[in-house]
Design a protein around this nucleic acid. Structure first.
Length: 863
RNA sequence: GGGCGCUUAGCUCAGCGGUAGAGCACUCGCCUUACAAGCGAGGGGUCACUGGUUCGAACCCAGUAGCGCCCACCA
């Protein structure tokens, strides 16, 4: 047994990097594909190479690390696979911004040089992220780190694209898509954020006299591209106009009035201008009625239509068009401000422009159906279950997925076009014929992320990793990307892996917020940088703070104070172990037989196993807050506050008692450190090694629940001791007796089991044997046990009277309440027996308390 | 416009049918030799509101108000 000279305060920085490097060097985190144990695998949701890890990542990683570390301790063959995402548009934007600082655009560099530049950036940024993961303590298998654009994953992308293409699930079509006029690319629905923006609803008269019709719009400039007006088929107001032509103002063009079910007769005037090239609904109306599509804006949303508006940006064109219409007396009404939902590019916040263009799509119908069914029939469990509904809403009503992006950073679409317009999808080992040119676009970044659970394991090759670790055991991620990402992994996983789901369980956590429940944002200045906390409070405290707030699917509020509290907890564990080491606690000897243990020993062992059971249960439900809470209170309130104090007394006895106490103490701390290790890997490693002289708690076994340690009698007895001690302490505090001041006392423990604790109680309460005379006494009782204190005339009668009065009032109130219950016939008739028994016991207790308190009050000296 | 959730101590939350809890903050007393990043004691809540079910409701049901989140092609 080594007893290193531990400092009195835990200094995280001293141990963290040292431990981490050793863990990696020892290969503790490396999955052994051929090894024993049930597989337990997690793929890390790959952070974007853009930027650095934020506190939300710290939560996400902490949860996964907790799960994987516990699984490792339980003897599973674990794999936690790390990696990063190339994050197409996000990364390209970041690098473009860097270039802009030098006054360059990506076009100045050219495609090849630009992509090279992004790769450089990826190397730097990626390295930073890996360093952060090490600081957090992530026990990932570094030998299997992947990147969504590495060779293997690119091959997987190309392979699945080819399969989908050949199955007719990928197609190219001219559709209205979301277009970002700043990024100059198509966006999928989920890359568009909607917000209620202020606009102006303008009513415009088309046509003249009886043949005129009033339409309402928030986007007046698009009228230049109108090719019809639509009304509801059953709208009698306009029945006479359907089939006729009206004149489109400013252009002189004649456009038809058509009848379409989509129009809501109760909104506005009940008549809708139809711009098929610039509105998704209008596009559908146009298609149904064979209307032409007239594109009036270019890719930068600059008006290209002939006339005075040509060359104006859409936001300049709008007032210009309105002014021109007003000049012609066409404006019938204006409503301002008018709030309506407007889509913004999720990357650059530019207002998205619906745009008619030729893009690649995935036909999601069959894939989404399978993805829904897998959760519906329980092959994949969503946790918490309430969130499954959101998942269903999404997959059951999913639009086809636009996967082409007019970007340079990403997986190039593996389709080549021949000189005669041939279209050829090229597989990973195929070469396109000469004279063919490749599609210039790249794939949506989520396309490669969707393959992550199997592409990282070697797919399309049937590697041993894939065989062993797919489906992965659990996916841990925030509820915010339940459909961004999870639904897509489900779709592609089921498709590529012959109907096998990518994960058995999806465990969703919430977002990290500040102490007031506010979202963290740079502009608000409430962002927490995990590295900052790690530096000041340690990685363990940072993790513990996050985990303490982590209930399935709910947001986590954190603050500086709580980080400090967690740091204090680390310190508490540190000092408890330090005490144990200084007092010769040992794990070398087996636990003595129960008959050789004291009540206190049996109590703490009973509590330990209760906690093991509770923690194991909480793990089943991913209740990290409960796990943390259980261990926190057991460690602090029971082990430190009571058992350590009782152990001091037992050790002072010397002999066998001391020896056995050292064994129990060593045993309890050993188990506690192992239970805490997944949550706080660094401090537990340092302490466990010191305590056990073994190499690493990382590969120690998880404490096994042993119900034979359950000892309700010991628990009751210690609780009674605690209550009596608390009562006496309260008296001392109320009386203003200094903690160290010794008081003479007679203990009336009724010859009950508590009599055995007299010595301990005298020590903990600083009570001496009674002196020969009593000038003033106080009798304190809990249940049938009592302590009589001789305060040598120093008793503060007023304080004591106040205290007793208060207790008496409480007891009387309790007695009245309970009596009312017992007098209630219906309660007596209908309440279950155990409830009635409890109430009776409370009544008896209350009566006894009243009698006792009244006697004490009567015995108080007057004046 | 749909859907979901929340409202419990100053703050963040747990409890989800039988005596209102935790952490932090607050008050008082203590350097009681593992720990002052600590120890002991204490104060603080008509569990949003209104009805209903029940012997009994913070907990179940209905409605009201406020807050939040997600989804959405009503011009």
């Amino acid at each position: 047994m080594t007893t290193p000279d531990l400092p009195t305060q835990y200094a995280p920085a001293d141990v963290e990097t040292r431990s981490y490097e050793r863990w990696v060097a020892e290969g503790y985190f490396t999955a052994d594909v051929g090894g024993g144990g049930e597989p337990y695998s997690i793929v890390l949701p790959p952070p974007n190479v853009t930027g650095v890890l934020h506190i939300g990542h710290a939560l996400d990683h902490s949860i996964q690390d907790v799960l994987i570390r516990r699984a490792r301790m339980r003897g599973h063959q674990t794999l936690w696979l790390p990696g990063m995402d190339h994050a197409g548009i996000a990364t390209q934007n970041v690098v473009e911004r860097e270039l802009a600082k030098q006054g360059l655009s990506r076009h100045d560099l050219g495609r090849e040089a630009f992509v090279e530049r992004v790769w450089q950036w990826k190397e730097e940024s990626g390295g930073r992220i890996l360093g952060q993961m090490a600081k957090l303590g992530d026990s990932v298998d570094w030998t299997r780190e992947r990147f969504t654009m590495d060779d293997g994953l690119s091959r997987a992308v190309q392979t699945i694209f080819k399969h989908l293409f050949d199955d007719g699930l990928i197609y190219r079509a001219e559709r209205i898509i979301n277009w970002c006029p700043r990024c100059l690319t198509a966006l999928s629905d989920i890359e568009v954020d909607h917000s209620d923006d202020e606009g102006e609803l303008i009513s415009i008269r088309y046509g003249e006299g009886d043949a005129s019709i009033v339409v309402a719009t928030t986007r007046a400039e698009t009228m230049l591209g109108d090719t019809a007006v639509a009304v509801h088929p059953s709208d009698e107001r306009y029945a006479h106009l359907v089939g006729t032509m009206v004149e489109l103002p400013l252009t002189g063009r004649m456009i038809p009035v058509v009848a379409d079910e989509h129009v809501d007769p109760s909104f506005g005037t009940g008549a809708v201008k139809v711009t098929p090239a610039h509105d998704p609904n209008d596009f559908e109306i146009g298609r149904r009625h064979g209307l032409p599509s007239l594109t009036i804006m270019d890719e930068r949303a600059v008006v290209t239509a002939h006339g005075p508006f040509q060359g104006l940006d859409r936001f300049e064109a709008r007032p210009a068009v309105v002014a021109a219409l007003r000049a012609e007396g066409r404006i019938v009404a204006e409503k301002r401000p008018y709030l309506h939902a407007v889509g913004h590019c999720s990357r650059c916040k530019t207002v998205v422009e619906p745009r008619l263009s030729l893009q690649w799509f995935v036909n999601v119908q069959p894939l989404a159906k399978a993805a829904g069914d897998a959760v519906r029939d329980g092959r994949t469990r969503v946790h918490p279950p309430e969130l499954a509904k959101r998942y269903f809403d999404w997959v059951d009503d999913m639009h086809d997925w636009c996967i082409s992006r007019q970007l340079w950073w990403g997986h190039r679409i593996p389709v080549w076009y021949g000189p005669e317009g041939e279209v050829l999808c090229v597989g990973p080992d195929e070469e396109p014929p000469p004279g063919y040119t490749q599609d210039p676009d790249v794939l949506d970044t989520w396309f490669s992320s969707a393959l992550w659970p199997f592409s990282t394991l070697g797919w399309p090759e049937r590697t041993p990793e894939l065989e062993r670790f797919y489906p992965t055991t659990v996916l841990v991620t925030g509820y915010d990307i339940l459909f961004f990402w999870v639904a897509r992994m489900m779709m592609f996983g089921l498709y590529a892996m012959d109907g096998e789901t990518p994960f058995r369980t999806v465990a969703l956590h919430g977002m990290v917020r500040d102490q007031f429940g506010k979202k963290m944002s740079k502009s608000f200045g409430n962002v927490v940088d995990p590295l900052d906390w790690i530096e000041r409070y340690g990685a363990d405290a940072t993790r513990f703070t996050l985990l303490r707030g982590a209930s399935p699917g709910s947001d986590v509020a954190i603050s500086e104070d709580w980080a400090a509290g967690s740091r204090n907890f680390c310190n508490k564990i540190w000092n408890a172990t330090r005490f144990a080491l200084l007092n010769g606690a040992t794990v070398a000897s087996p636990l003595p037989a129960p008959g050789d243990l004291t009540v206190a020993d049996r109590w703490i062992l009973s509590r330990l196993h209760t906690v093991i059971g509770a923690v194991d249960t909480a793990y089943e439900d991913f209740e990290f807050a409960k796990i943390s809470d259980q261990l926190y209170h057991f460690a602090w309130d029971e082990v430190c506050d009571w058992y350590v104090e009782l152990a001091k007394i037992q050790i002072a006895e010397g002999g066998d008692r001391a020896e056995r106490t050292r064994v129990v103490l060593g045993h309890v701390l050993d188990a506690l450190l192992r239970l805490l290790h997944p949550l706080m890997p660094f401090v537990t490693e340092e302490l466990w090694r010191a305590l056990t002289a073994r190499p690493s708690v990382v590969v120690a076994s998880w404490p096994a629940l042993d119900a034979s340690y359950a000892d309700p009698a010991a628990e009751r007895e210690i609780v009674a001791v605690q209550e009596l001690i608390t009562e006496v302490r309260r008296f001392r505090s109320d009386q203003g007796l200094k903690p160290g001041q010794r008081v003479a006392a007679r203990l009336s423990l009724d010859g009950s089991a508590l009599a055995a604790h007299e010595g301990a109680m005298r020590t903990l309460l600083r009570l001496d044997a009674p002196g020969p005379t009593f000038s003033a006494t106080a009798r304190l009782a809990v249940g049938t046990s009592a302590v009589e204190l001789d305060t040598a005339g120093a008793i503060d009668v007023a304080a004591e009277r106040k205290r007793l009065d208060k207790d008496l009032a409480a007891a009387r109130k309790e007695a009245a309440q309970v009596a009312a219950k017992l007098a209630n016939e219906q309660f007596m008739a209908k309440a279950p027996d155990d409830v009635v028994t409890k109430v009776r016991a409370r009544a008896a207790q209350a009566d006894a308390d009243i009698a006792r308190l009244e006697a004490q009050l009567a015995a108080l000296p007057t004046g």
